[in-house]
């Protein structure tokens, strides 16, 4: 009915606008707090992008995070239930 508000799932309300993730990544890098170096970031991202829990090259289904943001955070671990994939590869490298 016309007087009702749009419900929360109505189109547009839950969409991620273009550039949204990039803006968050840039802001985090500019803050300079608790972020990994560029090499480590790329290494983590490579692992995430090959992981079967990664959705649309952007979302980790094990924690609900944008992989770009989780991989950037030096205090975060990979949440995969079979073990930390970032850590595993570090050991074998």
């Amino acid at each position: 009915m016309s007087t009702q508000e749009l419900c929360t799932a109505c189109p547009g309300k839950m969409q991620v606008p273009p550039g949204y993730i990039e803006e968050l990544v840039d802001a985090r890098i500019k803050s300079g707090v608790g972020i990994v170096n560029d090499n480590e970031y790329r290494r983590r991202m490579d692992i995430c992008l090959k992981c079967d829990s990664c959705l649309n090259d952007a979302i980790c289904m094990k924690c609900g995070c944008f992989i770009q943001l989780r991989a950037l955070n030096e205090f975060r671990k990979c949440p995969h239930p079979d073990g930390d994939k970032w850590d595993k590869l570090e050991q074998t490298a």
């Binding site: 839950m14 609900g64 944008f66």
Partner: peptide
């Protein structure tokens, strides 16, 4: 939603 997480997941 929690920082770093997908807004549409309502985590």
């Amino acid at each position: 939603n929690e920082p770093d997480t997908v807004p549409g997941f309502l985590y």
